[in-house]
């Protein structure tokens, strides 16, 4: 078994055996440990509360030397996630220059959860959402809740 698969298998066992609260994980295809389906609950107190967000975690073949890629399959109105079918997410820990092989998938998942609770508008990919988040928080929260009801139920 390739060493990347060994490492992924270990991490998968860890996440399955001790899943973080509000996060459920299963493999897209049981024969392939590189693609994970993730269902993440919207954090309490955030405009995403009550929503269930589907994410796809893709682990490259040269993992852990290259970072995983994570994207929202469920549309979400969030400064750090593109509001389109790609749902690309910008998160510091996954940037290639910042990624370290000593980072765990578990920490990627909890970091994603934290990002839902606390957007980082200065590092935004969805700039209109970031503008509203910074300048008109009530409007942003209202829109985010509406999209959560619309897409993430």
């Amino acid at each position: 078994m390739a060493s990347s698969q060994k490492r992924i298998t270990k991490e998968l066992a860890e996440v399955l055996g001790n899943p973080p609260e509000g996060i459920a994980v299963n493999l897209v295809d049981e024969g392939n440990v590189h693609n994970w389906n993730i269902v993440m609950d919207g954090p309490e107190g955030s405009p995403y509360e009550g929503g269930k967000f589907k994410l796809l975690l893709v682990l490259p073949t040269d993992y852990p030397f290259k970072p995983p890629k994570i994207s929202f399959k469920t549309r979400i109105w969030h400064p750090n996630v593109t509001f389109d079918e790609h749902g690309s997410m910008c998160i510091g820990i996954l940037k290639p220059e910042a990624w370290k092989p000593s980072s765990k998938i578990m920490s990627v998942l909890t970091a994603t959860q934290n990002l839902l609770a606390e957007p980082v508008p200065d590092d935004a990919v969805e700039t209109s959402a970031a503008e509203k988040f910074k300048n008109d928080r009530p409007l942003f929260n209202r829109e985010a809740r509406e999209y959560t009801r619309k897409y993430a139920k």
């Binding site: 030397f65 290259k66 290639p96 220059e97 910042a98 990624w99 370290k100 092989p101 000593s102």
Partner: peptide
Amino acid sequence: RKNVLEPV
């Protein structure tokens, strides 16, 4: 260590 040695 973090910025020079450990990044891939």
